[in-house]
């Protein structure tokens, strides 16, 4: 962007049928190809916008208000997942949470990221819990980490679950670091404090 009056003409062309933009030439640069891929994906997403009556067609609407349909679907999937969990059908619960996560992540990119964070952090935390109920510690640990990534503060359960999974897998040092970080973020959360105490006891026992 050295000067604003000029630009570099790029070797691209449009497929007349699909309207996809493609790099021309035999050896397109990788950056250009990747960017065009993103562009075409965004174009498809724009074409899929449902146009409410009165709105301008084919323009991404402002982030707010959100189309409530997807939100409703996601929370429905989460609720049925919770029901299965309560019935101790953990496999089913995992399946439903997975569907919910996919649904939430397919939300159009221009809708609020904060909403996606909230939805997926909850779903990942629940899926982690179901995995833990089945003793699948590695999956539980990964899901809990994803949950924390989506929402760092106010997600004590997510922090705790990964700490627990790591402890169960015997990765005590890692678990201790993790829970310490959790305490920094969440303050003196009782569950986390007792987990840390448990981990430290285990470390002492392993040393002895």
């Amino acid at each position: 962007m050295s000067d604003l009056d000029h630009f570099s003409m790029l070797p691209i062309h449009m497929d007349p049928q699909s309207k996809a933009i493609l790099p021309s030439g035999s050896r397109p640069s990788r950056a250009l190809a990747a960017e065009l891929e993103k562009l075409n994906a965004l174009h498809r997403a724009i074409l899929n916008i449902e146009v409410p009556p009165g709105a301008i067609p084919l323009v991404p609407p402002p982030p707010i208000p959100v189309n409530p349909k997807r939100t409703a679907n996601v929370s429905k999937l989460r609720d049925s997942g919770n029901t299965e969990y309560r019935r101790q059908k953990y496999e089913e619960a995992v399946k439903l949470y997975t569907q919910g996560i996919e649904m939430a992540l397919q939300r159009p990119l221009w809708e609020p990221a904060a909403l996606v964070r909230e939805e997926v952090s909850m779903l990942y935390a629940n899926r982690a819990q179901s995995h833990m109920a089945m003793g699948n510690w590695p999956e539980g640990a990964v899901d809990a980490e994803a949950s924390v990534e989506a929402r760092r503060v106010g997600n004590a359960k997510g922090w705790w679950r990964r700490g627990r999974c790591l402890t169960e897998m015997g990765r005590l040092e890692e678990a201790r670091e993790w829970v310490k970080r959790a305490l920094e973020m969440e303050g003196e959360e009782a569950d986390l404090v007792s987990l840390l105490k448990d981990i430290e006891e285990r470390i002492d026992k392993a040393r002895a």
Binding site: M14, K19, I21, E35, L39, L42, I46, L47, L58, P60
Partner: peptide, 14 residues
């Protein structure tokens, strides 16, 4: 070729 508005909008958004 005439580039559809949708493509242009997507490109501008990118």
């Amino acid at each position: 070729p005439k580039v559809p508005d949708g493509v242009l909008r997507a490109a501008l958004l990118r």
